[in-house]
């Protein structure tokens, strides 16, 4: 009986937490249009968020995508021509870089860099009563703190995904020149042939959803801090862990949705 009670209690807690999180997301989304129509004060926060999340992550993104493009080209060009399927390299580049790894790796990097930063920052703001200061000033903290971060992170993830593609596909072209030189024209038209609007749409949808997930999870956990500064690192860790799990689940769901 005791176990039954425990299971019941933990289920109720979980459902409660889930409903609370859903309510949080709904509230944030409700505030997005208000922020956009009403942004007297938040645009600076938005700019800084894009600077931190987008611009400052650019070098990491460039390095990783160049590396991955290189690996695909080298492995692909050593294997595919054996089957007379050399042109498949373009499809593989598109599938791996544009459809799959681009969005998810970008989101993972953003989660690791900005997710922790946002959770920590918001946790600190709670502890030092800055959130209360916003509330009492009549500035809705969701609208003024969460929404610009949501928009900034989502937008940055979208842009970084784009840069990931550019560097990944460009980098692989450079490598191709050493392995099996083709003209830029041929490489480019091969890529464009393999690239469909579905790929582009899938990549864009993914990067936007992933960016939103990262921002929502990070702000949610940051605001979960109550009063002690010892809760802040816990919130940061939780936001990364929960964020990565959700990203991978969302990636699987979106990929699945595109194949259905």
């Amino acid at each position: 009986m005791h176990h039954v009670e425990r299971i019941g209690a933990s289920t109720i807690t979980r459902v409660d937490r889930f409903i609370y999180a859903v309510g949080y997301v709904v509230e944030v989304l409700r505030q997005v249009p208000r922020f956009l129509t009403h942004r007297r004060t938040g645009s600076r926060v938005l700019t800084m968020q894009v600077l931190f999340t987008g611009v400052e992550a650019l070098s990491v993104i460039a390095t990783i995508s160049l590396g991955i493009g290189t690996v695909i080209v080298i492995q692909g060009l050593s294997l595919l021509p054996q089957f007379g399927q050399g042109r498949l390299i373009y499809s593989i580049l598109i599938i791996v870089i544009t459809r799959e790894l681009g969005p998810i790796l970008t989101a993972l990097i953003v989660t690791a860099r900005s997710g922790t930063a946002i959770a920590t920052e918001l946790g600190n703001m709670v502890v030092s009563h800055e959130i209360e200061a916003y509330s009492i000033t009549g500035i809705n903290p969701i609208r003024h703190i969460v929404v610009p971060r949501l928009i900034g992170v989502t937008f940055s993830t979208f842009l970084l995904n784009l840069y990931f593609n550019v560097f990944g596909l460009l980098g692989s072209f450079v490598v191709t020149q050493f392995v099996n030189p083709v003209s830029l024209q041929e490489y480019w038209s091969g890529l464009l042939e393999a690239l469909s609007m579905t790929d582009v749409a899938s990549s864009i949808v993914k990067s936007l959803v992933f960016g939103a997930i990262t921002a929502l999870v990070a702000t949610f956990h940051g605001l979960q801090v109550e009063r002690s500064s010892t809760e802040i690192p816990v919130a940061a860790i939780r936001s990364v862990g929960r964020g990565i799990t959700l990203l991978i689940v969302a990636n699987a769901l979106i990929t699945l949705a595109y194949y259905l």
Partner: peptide
Amino acid sequence: LRYRYANQVVGVFVIVA
């Protein structure tokens, strides 16, 4: 420097993309 020119830096980042 990049914080002082945050708007410019972000602007370039966005426009290029």
